[in-house]
């Protein structure tokens, strides 16, 4: 039963990684940029919810605060694109990478100034109670995380495959100029996708904060989530989720069965192995350029 317990808690952790990874993949699919600040977005989403919910701040009911926080993060995402990323039009991918890393630093600093650096707990109704499944005891938060993640992935997958906006987003990433000529408002589409990824980050943040205490440095989780996204294959939403789950499950098992210190290494070691074997992730999208 211990194995099952490890597996489930690993899956729940993995879902949080997966949700952050979804944010990465969303932006990559639509704009070909990589948002290294996605983890810090998640952290910010968690703190915004905390600021709205907790007694010492605004003290709103959780079920009002959560949608509000998601909305706030969506708007922040859109504004970020509007004021910053849109102006990088035509600059290299590297410029975007380094810019979003810097952005992460700034978000972490701002969150520290507003909410302090002490760990805080979100007063979330999800944080209490257990679910009994046979002999396995699951935290309410873990169950919620898994359910919400599956729903979120399904929703986003359908969105990209079925809706006009989703297809427009994919087209815009393949070739901005061609998409522009086809009548796709490239800039607005990209703004919307940043908004969508902000909302995803907020969902991840709320779920993460329901599982334990948060401080401004939890955003560094984003790096692990990024590794997950790469393992799963950038550009594929189910792949991102799968990568998140793999990383989430590896960690508790590595710390249980290997010497101390190895559980930290395991996800990155796996990442390097995947990159050596399949340089473009398990679900590669890179093709050879025609000359």
């Amino acid at each position: 039963m211990e194995v099952l317990q490890l597996l489930v808690s690993g899956l729940a952790n993995g879902c949080v990684y997966g949700l952050i990874a979804l944010g990465f993949v969303l932006i990559y699919k639509a704009t070909e940029a990589v948002n290294f600040a996605q983890g810090d977005f998640m952290m910010l989403g968690a703190f915004v919810t905390l600021g709205l919910t907790n007694a010492e701040y605004m003290h709103l009911p959780f079920w009002l605060a959560a949608p509000l926080a998601i909305l706030i993060m969506a708007v922040l995402g859109y504004l970020l694109d509007y004021f910053v990323l849109r102006h990088l039009f035509g600059q290299s991918q590297t410029a975007v990478v380094i810019l979003t890393i810097a952005l992460g630093f700034v978000i972490r600093f701002v969150a520290g100034v507003i909410w302090g650096h002490e760990p805080q707990t979100l007063e979330s109704p999800l944080a209490f109670g257990d679910v009994h499944l046979g002999s396995v005891v699951l935290g309410m938060a873990d169950v919620a995380v898994i359910i919400v993640t599956v729903l979120m992935t399904l929703f986003l997958y359908q969105f990209f495959q079925r809706t006009k906006l989703g297809l427009a987003m994919q087209a815009a990433s393949q070739n901005q100029m061609a998409a522009y000529y086809m009548g796709i408002p490239v800039k607005r589409v990209q703004g919307l996708i940043w908004g969508l990824s902000g909302a995803t980050a907020a969902v991840a943040g709320i779920l993460f904060a329901s599982k334990g205490a948060i401080d401004p440095n939890v955003g560094l989780l984003g790096i692990k989530a990024f590794a997950a996204a790469v393992i799963g294959g950038f550009g594929s939403l189910p792949g991102a989720l799968a990568g998140g789950l793999i990383v989430g499950v590896i960690e508790p098992f590595a710390s249980r069965y290997f010497a101390a210190g190895y559980s930290q290494i395991a996800p990155y070691a796996l990442l390097l192995i995947v990159l050596v074997v399949r340089p473009n992730g398990l679900f590669s999208q890179v093709r050879i350029k025609k000359v």
């Binding site: 810097a102 700034v106 600093f109 701002v110």
Partner: peptide, 16 residues
């Protein structure tokens, strides 16, 4: 986080 925050801000301004 002040140093990294300000450093990050400087970098963003430069890239923009």
């Amino acid at each position: 986080g002040l140093e990294t925050g300000v450093f990050g801000m400087i970098l963003i301004l430069f890239i923009l």
